[in-house]
Amino acid sequence: MTFRLTCPVCGKRDVYEFTFGGQERGPRPEQDGLSAEEHFRWTQFRLIPNEPQEEWWYHGQGCGVWFRTTRDPGTNREVR
């Protein structure tokens, strides 16, 4: 189902204009004392329950901004 996302600059646009950037996980962890396991968990392991999640999208075929939005993976719709 084609859906649309709300770019903070351009407004609602077709999802195929965007690149998906994954769940919001907070800033990169501090590297002093970061164990290998912690790093690889941070980069690859995710909890994906079937409920809305905050995530990153890039408007590559538009204004070129990375932005956060909340989307429901059960419906593919943005949640406001």
């Binding site: 690149t19 950037g21 907070g26 800033p27 990169r28 990153w56 890039y58 590559g60 070129g64 901004v65 990375w66």
Partner: peptide
């Protein structure tokens, strides 16, 4: 490349 730079500095 632009996407990459901006992604990895998106929290900064």
């Amino acid at each position: 490349t632009v996407e990459w730079f901006r992604f990895h500095t998106r929290h900064d």
